[in-house]
Design a protein around this nucleic acid. Structure first.
Length: 446
DNA sequence: CGTCCACGTCTAC
DNA sequence: TAGACCTGGACGG
């Protein structure tokens, strides 16, 4: 769940768990992980954490020891503090356990000096995460949307000519140079709150804010002059009407509040987040793949810059009751119908597909529809899979409000299987070669 | 057992 | 703008 709020919760977790504890020895890295060793070793040190956008920085500080002066300082023992900056990738998080319960995929470990030692570990199943000994906040990442709000806002509004804002707002929101901390679920939730079509040009949306800001100042002046009047409702003079940028700050904080009572990634806590979500992965919402192959969830009109061949990914359409609730002129209707389960797609042939694709596209359907679906296919049709969604997905979700159905992926329980081994599939054993399919694609640009 | 999907970057054509 | 980088859960056959 690593987006800004989770990174911040991770830092709170580390500070809470490690407060008053003394750590000792070397920092241990798993064999499989390709990140660098952390050259820090100390008889006694403490750990503090801080977050900024989508990064967390741990500071390892040697603890002064009175008789330390005499104690020969082994050259292996650090005397100076060290910062280690983490990025969580898709699956990173911190845990604090006994040595016995070391989680699988605990790739970096800090041990306490207690008797049965305990361990603070950076757990990262997919290993997309990274850490940087003696690191600093990554240059090129903008101000934190949560803790550097004013400069975040300024950074965006004073750089609207940047071509980063030529893109659809939903894609610009993932640009960490301007929206450090926003990720895939936050962008959906934020745009949803304002009902901004995700594929509206970013600059268009943001220029509106810039103007309003100016208006606001003007209005303020007027007001001081006019004193109170009846303008109340109109310009929202009363309490700041939320705009896209303020929501980039407020919405993440809502998530922080949800999790303050216990940071437990990979655990049932996720269901709380799911229950909170109003759009991302929610039944009845629309979703399509953006220009970077990332799924954007939204309600209603996708907006003008929607990818040409963008077909709905997995319309949650299960709820047909709608039709009117969204109004959204064509948008929804269209794609929903595009259905026409054209190919059952059999699969196989993938091999040849490669070449074929060029010509065929349409019929080569086989191959991994998914992929095809995304880009290649020119035909509007092809939803193929839509049906599958329908029943399942939502079903298992927790009771919740009934308003939000949750998709269905992992939900509480599950845990139980205890395996401590830090087993990791050695690269050597990589059975499957490629399979380029996997949905995730890089992201962002400049 | 195979396919698709995942809360994110990185880096080569 | 395509992959690459990874593991694993949900689903479908």
């Amino acid at each position: 769940m690593p987006e800004g709020p989770e990174l911040h919760l991770a830092s709170l977790f580390v500070n809470r768990m490690c407060e008053g504890l003394v750590f000792s020895g070397a920092v241990e890295k798993s064999e499989v992980n390709k990140n660098p060793e952390v050259p820090f070793c100390c008889d006694a040190y403490c750990i503090k954490a801080q977050s900024r956008g989508k990064e967390v920085r741990l500071t390892l500080t040697p603890i002064k020891n009175d008789d330390d002066g005499k104690r020969k300082v082994s050259k292996h023992h650090s005397q100076q503090p060290m910062d280690v900056v983490f990025r969580f990738g898709m699956s990173g998080f911190f845990r604090f356990t006994s040595v016995e319960d070391l989680p699988k995929h605990a790739h970096l470990r800090f041990y306490t000096n207690e008797n049965p030692r305990r361990v603070l570990s950076f757990v990262d199943t997919r290993r997309f995460g990274s850490w940087h000994p003696n690191g600093t906040w990554q240059k090129d990442r903008g101000p934190c949307v949560m803790f550097e709000y004013e400069s975040f806002r300024e950074n965006v509004l004073s750089n609207l000519s940047d071509k980063a804002f030529d893109k659809p707002i939903c894609e610009a929101l993932l640009n960490q140079k301007y929206f450090n901390g926003i990720g895939n679920y936050l962008r959906a939730e934020i745009l949803f709150r304002l009902q901004i079509p995700p594929f509206t040009k970013a600059r268009t949306v943001l220029e509106g804010i810039e103007l309003k800001d100016k208006d606001k100042k003007e209005i303020k002046k007027e007001i001081t002059v006019l004193e109170k009047t009846d303008r109340a409702g109109k310009k929202g003079v009363k309490v700041e009407t939320p705009d896209l940028l303020s929501l980039c700050h407020d919405v993440p904080f809502e998530v922080v509040k949800l999790g303050e009572n216990g940071y437990a990634p990979a655990k049932g806590e996720y269901s709380v987040l799911q229950a909170w979500m109003q759009c991302y992965s929610v039944d009845g919402m629309n979703s399509i793949s953006d220009h970077n192959g990332r799924t954007i969830w939204f309600k209603g009109d996708p907006g003008p810059m929607v990818p040409k061949d963008a077909k709905s990914r997995k319309m949650k359409w299960k709820i047909q009751k709608d039709d009117d609730y969204t109004d959204s002129k064509k948008a929804k209707k269209t794609r929903t119908d595009s259905t026409a389960i054209k190919k059952p797609a059999k699969k196989k042939d993938n091999i040849k597909v490669k070449k074929e694709s060029a010509t065929s596209k349409a019929q080569s359907g086989s191959k991994r529809q998914k992929k095809v679906t995304k880009r290649v296919s020119t035909e509007p049709a092809d939803e193929t899979k839509k049906l599958k969604e329908q029943g399942k997905r939502s079903s298992k979700v927790p009771p919740r409000t009934g308003t939000n159905k949750i998709k269905g992926q992992r939900v509480k329980e599950v845990i139980k299987t205890k395996r401590n081994s830090v087993t990791c599939r050695k690269s050597a054993t990589k059975a499957k070669p490629q399979r380029k399919s996997s949905g995730t694609r890089r992201g962002r640009s400049r």
